Simulated scan of single mutants.
Amino acid sequence: MMIHLLFDPFISYGFMRRALVACLALSFSTTPLGVFLLLRRMSLVGDALSHAILPGVAIGYLVYGMSRAAMGIGGFIAGVVVAVLSGWVSTMTSLKEDASFAGFYLGSLALGVILISLRGSSIDLQHLLFGSILSVDTSAIYLIGIITSITFLTLALLYRALVVESFDATFLRVNSSIFPCLIQSLFLALVVLNLVIGFQMLGTMMSVGMMILPAIAASCWTNWLPYMFFLATIIGLVCSWCGLSWSFYSYIPAGPTIVLIASIVFLFSVLVGPRGGKVRLFRRRRHNVMVSKDNK
């Protein structure tokens, strides 16, 4: 019965199949980036960039209406500009990078909302902020497939440098002709590109959730990097499938539902995962206390 409930919406309805394919492709593309953001201690930077794309999305919306291509190009340009300006400010001043990103993304978010409100209705603003995954069409799926392929190819070419730079940027600077700033710039461009694709389905508020939450949950179960990539992708796939099914039967928004399930998996992993599981840590401490009492 449960299996029938999970499969029936995708067998019976084309829009559910398209949404599922888009979510699965997005999971393959964004979760490896989330793992690298986690390794580089830049999880909140990903959240900042997801909000920073909103002014570009708003300008594309004002000029061309609800055109995915125009909003995507505008969002990508806005995200790259914010990333470059934040890096420049943190380099030229004593301000740390996270504070610089926070300042720029808050201003970008406010500017984007104001720009959209100049012409759009509350429904348009809601679609841009929280996504409309069930309206994904075939052309959007092709675009997501292209971005996923670009992401995989770039990560494959830069994998070694990204891993080394995540743990020891000084070592990479001394022992390689590749500058860490170039690696970081390419990586942030990939993050922005995937956030731009993700916002069209999950919205600017939710797109970073599918990038970060599966990565954090996977890190609670393993510290072996290849396995972490694999587990994060599996978590993203399962959350997408279950979120779409739940939203279909409950008549609730699909994007927030997917992110909510990812949050539940994250909380479960934090509590019981072998790497930082609070329940296991509590049991271990209790066992140590009992052993010490017995020895006395």
Results as ranks from 00 to 15, higher is better:
residue 118 L to R: 15
residue 118 L to A: 13
residue 118 L to N: 15
residue 119 R to N: 15
residue 119 R to W: 04
residue 119 R to A: 08
residue 119 R to E: 13
residue 119 R to G: 14
residue 120 G to T: 12
residue 120 G to K: 14
residue 120 G to I: 10
residue 120 G to V: 11
residue 120 G to F: 07
residue 121 S to V: 14
residue 121 S to A: 13
residue 121 S to C: 11
residue 121 S to P: 10
residue 122 S to F: 02
residue 122 S to A: 08
residue 122 S to G: 09
residue 123 I to A: 14
residue 123 I to V: 14
residue 123 I to T: 15
residue 123 I to G: 11
residue 123 I to M: 10
residue 123 I to R: 09
residue 123 I to Q: 13
residue 124 D to N: 08
residue 124 D to A: 08
residue 124 D to V: 05
residue 125 L to F: 05
residue 125 L to P: 03
residue 125 L to H: 02
residue 125 L to K: 00
residue 126 Q to N: 11
residue 126 Q to C: 13
residue 126 Q to T: 13
residue 127 H to C: 14
residue 127 H to I: 11
residue 127 H to L: 14
residue 127 H to V: 13
residue 128 L to I: 11
residue 128 L to S: 04
residue 128 L to T: 06
residue 128 L to A: 04
residue 128 L to N: 03
residue 129 L to W: 04
residue 129 L to S: 01
residue 129 L to D: 02
residue 129 L to R: 00
residue 129 L to I: 10
residue 130 F to S: 02
residue 130 F to H: 05
residue 130 F to V: 01
residue 130 F to N: 03
residue 130 F to W: 06
residue 131 G to P: 04
residue 131 G to K: 00
residue 131 G to M: 01
residue 131 G to C: 06
residue 131 G to Y: 01
residue 132 S to G: 09
residue 132 S to I: 02
residue 132 S to K: 10
residue 132 S to Y: 12
residue 132 S to N: 09
residue 133 I to E: 00
residue 133 I to K: 00
residue 133 I to D: 00
residue 133 I to G: 00
residue 133 I to V: 07
residue 133 I to C: 00
residue 134 L to Y: 03
residue 134 L to S: 09
residue 134 L to F: 03
residue 135 S to Y: 13
residue 136 V to G: 05
residue 136 V to N: 09
residue 136 V to E: 07
residue 137 D to A: 10
residue 137 D to S: 08
residue 137 D to P: 07
residue 137 D to Y: 12
residue 138 T to F: 15
residue 138 T to D: 08
residue 138 T to Y: 15
residue 138 T to H: 09
residue 139 S to W: 08
residue 139 S to R: 12
residue 139 S to C: 06
residue 139 S to E: 15
residue 140 A to E: 12
residue 140 A to C: 12
residue 141 I to D: 01
residue 141 I to P: 00
residue 141 I to F: 04
residue 141 I to G: 01
residue 142 Y to C: 12
residue 142 Y to M: 14
residue 143 L to T: 09
residue 143 L to P: 08
residue 143 L to G: 06
residue 143 L to M: 13
residue 143 L to F: 12
residue 143 L to N: 09
residue 144 I to K: 05
residue 144 I to N: 06
residue 144 I to P: 06
residue 144 I to A: 06
residue 144 I to S: 08
residue 144 I to C: 05
residue 145 G to T: 05
residue 145 G to I: 04
residue 145 G to W: 00
residue 146 I to L: 07
residue 146 I to A: 03
residue 146 I to F: 03
residue 146 I to R: 06
residue 146 I to N: 03
residue 147 I to K: 09
residue 148 T to E: 02
residue 148 T to G: 02
residue 148 T to I: 04
residue 149 S to L: 12
residue 149 S to N: 09
residue 150 I to R: 07
residue 150 I to D: 01
residue 150 I to L: 12
residue 150 I to Q: 05
